[in-house]
Design a protein around this nucleic acid. Structure first.
Length: 540
RNA sequence: CUCCCCGUAGCUCAAUGGAUAGAGCAGUAGCCUUCUAAGCUGCUUAUAUAGGUUCGAUUCCUAUCGGGGAGACCA
């Protein structure tokens, strides 16, 4: 990565290296000196000048110009020669282009969706699902050892409520077609009239027949593990954690319930671990206890260095509680929670409360029946996690045709079309399939010199952003950067396409150089689309 | 009442405290005898309000207004 090379040259480890929007300020710039000058009370311009002198002395072929700009920026302009070399680098790296190793093979778990097995997936699950999936992709590319997990809450109060709902007794809450179906399906189980048993059976069915097919087949997301809450309870892991808390004297009993002293670890109030038996309900573990056991498993047993939980905004208040448990049990590793703001459902400009009880919701299945997966992914991925999102299915359907994903995919199809045509016209001389073509381009490395058109260089500058995009996204989890980047990238390609005719029988060297650039663009775009889980069509 | 998130162009969204606030869609004027016009080029429009910190604020702090979420022996 060029950024880290510049950092090394500056010998300022925490210097932020920018890409200025204004081309007059070079390809990269840094304000590091401004900060340093402030700290040391020196004149930033003088400091910057001195630093630049040192860099010039150290002599590098990468830059064509290093300038100091008021009030103390240092602007780096890279040489065209350097940019051209990058095309060859990309062709060499192929599908590995963009891969970096800031993760150092550390074990990271991304836990996402984890929707209760009590009904179909919602739009909010879709948003979090695509986000988590792509974040995991990016982390893997950044050199982490990534696992995706889904925590199945197949035990506890909500499963009992599900049982009541399927039984259609007076404590029923969930409504919808699937409940009616389950009611008929489990007629044999209904004999037992035990809401817990019926609920567990129904939860199992919902997971296997509704959630998993939607996630695997429709959303195209693969989880490494589906961890069952019930199995943690049955295996005794939940008890184990409770005993550890008790042994540390971090629990107490009050009003018949067992409490965790979470306030000792920064929480607002103490939390109940086991409810008291009252109002006809038996004592039961709250969600916190199995979740504590689950995180104990993540950090202590599975030895994850980092755990990233993707949650909906309605779980915000839960973060402190979980962090408290982690601290209380001295779990090693990092726990991070990404909060996805909720998706509001709008119909004709009016908000409709999404409610499983009222049956007023649009499921993810319904959405994905109306809208292609690529469109849905791009649509959700474009938005930063903390933006509040209004969703109107009719509008989404209407805008599906205008989705920028087509702009991106069209560029890919265009590139493939050119490469096909070139191969038909005998470029390069040996012709053949694309894989062979690439190796032929490499043989003609000197023809890269011919890439000098502003649109060609602008395109290369976009290509070399990919590793930086991956590094940034793996650091701040700003997954929406990817669709943004893909649009920037293809905009440069479309411009190049307009300005530079690739196949030119009268200038074979230039043609080969431009074909190499096309192939490098194809690789970069393909790798970017792969990260987003979006298909790369060779024809449109 | 307390806490969290958000307020940017007509609409949907970008912008590690940086230099001239960017895209897409919509609107509008052009560009195909030439590799895919699902494209390219031009024009038009924006930081909720009031203070503060800073060389420099869409970004950080305070207050106000407006929208969403949380505050249970629910998950």
């Amino acid at each position: 990565m060029i950024r880290s090379q510049i950092q090394k040259l500056l010998n300022l480890p925490d210097a932020a290296i920018d890409r200025p929007e204004n081309p007059g300020f070079g390809d990269y710039s840094t304000n590091a000196v401004l900060k340093l000058a402030k700290k040391e009370g020196k004149n930033p311009m003088i400091l910057a000048q001195a630093l630049v002198q040192k860099i010039l002395v150290s002599d590098t072929h990468i830059f064509s110009k290093i300038e100091v700009a008021s009030p103390g920026f240092i602007n780096f302009t890279l040489s065209n020669e350097f940019f051209r070399q990058q095309v060859a680098e990309i062709l060499k790296a192929k599908e590995n282009y963009g891969a970096i190793n800031i993760g150092e093979n550390k074990k990271v778990q991304v836990e996402f969706i984890s929707a209760n097995p009590t009904g179909p997936l919602t739009l909010g699950n879709g948003r979090g699902g695509f986000f988590g999936d792509v974040l995991a992709n990016v982390l893997a590319r950044a050199g982490f050892d990534v696992k995706r997990e889904y925590f199945v809450n197949d035990a506890g109060y909500q499963v009992e409520v599900l049982g009541h709902s399927v039984l259609k007794d007076e404590q029923a809450q969930y409504k919808g077609e699937y409940i009616d179906k389950l009611n008929k399906k489990f007629i044999c189980w209904l004999c037992s009239k035990d809401p817990k048993k019926v609920g567990q059976k129904a939860a199992k069915y919902i997971l296997a027949k509704m959630l998993q097919p939607t996630i695997k087949d429709r959303m195209k997301i693969k989880f490494d593990e589906w961890v069952s809450e019930n199995s943690l309870r049955l295996s005794g892991e939940t008890d184990e954690v409770l005993q550890m808390l008790k042994a540390k004297n971090l629990t107490y009993e009050q009003d018949g319930a067992v409490w965790f002293k979470s306030t000792q670890f920064g929480d607002d109030k103490d939390r109940v671990l086991i409810t008291s038996a009252k109002d006809g309900k038996s004592a039961a573990a709250t969600y916190l206890l199995p979740d504590a056991a689950y995180h104990y498993k993540k950090f202590v047993k599975d030895k994850f260095d980092k755990v990233i939980n993707v949650w909906g905004a309605d779980h915000h208040g839960y973060i402190l509680r979980l962090q408290a448990v982690k601290k209380a049990l001295d779990m090693p590793g990092e726990l991070e929670v990404v909060i996805m703001q909720l998706v509001r459902l709008m119909v004709k400009g009016q908000e409709v409360k999404m409610s499983k009880r009222l049956g007023t919701y649009i499921t993810l299945d319904e959405l994905l029946e109306e809208i292609p997966l690529d469109v849905a992914r791009f649509f959700f991925l474009m938005r930063a996690p903390n933006t509040h999102m209004d969703f109107d299915l009719d509008l989404a359907k209407e805008q599906s045709q205008k989705n920028p994903v087509y702009y991106v995919q069209y560029a890919y199809a265009r590139i493939c079309s050119i490469l096909r045509k070139a191969s038909e016209s005998g470029f390069p001389p040996s012709g053949g399939v694309r894989g062979d073509v690439v190796s032929d381009y490499k043989l003609q490395a000197n023809s890269y010199q011919l890439l000098s058109h502003p649109s060609e260089l602008a395109l290369i500058k976009q290509l070399i952003r990919l590793p930086e995009i991956i590094a940034d996204t793996a650091t701040d989890y700003g997954v929406h950067r990817l669709p943004q980047y893909s649009m920037d990238l293809v905009r440069s390609f479309h411009k190049f396409y307009e300005d530079c005719k690739v196949i030119d029988e009268t200038n074979k060297d230039l043609t080969v150089a431009r074909l190499a650039l096309c192939e490098a663009t194809r690789i970069t775009l393909k790798n970017t689309l792969d990260l987003m889980g979006i298909s790369a069509p060779e024809k449109m």
